[in-house]
């Protein structure tokens, strides 16, 4: 079998790519997809460790993460649609009313 360290490394790479997506892209939907990628890399790690330690709970956690992600996507996309309605854009940099 492939050593678990390989999976950890792959997961780290995917996670970093996801982070870069969040930090460098301006399109809110792509930022959102990057977050999904990050969650996915964490899931991969869960499954790998579940296998390593033969603890099935890891897989259960993946299951829960997926449900939470589904809920998050539903609300998040709704938010994006709502933002698009009021601002007429989904460029995250134009939504900067947080500046005091």
């Amino acid at each position: 079998m492939v050593p678990v360290e390989y999976y950890v490394g792959l997961s780290a790479i995917l996670f970093t790519i996801g982070t870069l997506g969040v930090l460098t892209r301006r399109n809110a939907i792509i930022i959102f997809m990057s977050i999904e990628l990050m969650l996915n890399s964490a899931n991969l790690l869960f499954v790998a460790f579940a296998r390593t330690f033969e603890a099935l709970s890891g897989q259960i956690f993946v299951f829960f993460v997926m449900t939470v992600a589904a809920a998050e996507v539903a609300v998040g996309l709704a938010l994006i649609v709502a933002v698009f309605r009021t601002k007429d854009t989904i460029n995250i940099d134009e939504v900067s009313s947080l500046r005091g």
């Binding site: 301006r26 996507v73 996309l77 989904i90 460029n91």
Partner: peptide, 19 residues
Amino acid sequence: IMVLFLFVIMLLGAEHLER
């Protein structure tokens, strides 16, 4: 989930936006 994403992209016409 990804279908939902595509759906919203198409709906908002947000394929391109890079200002």
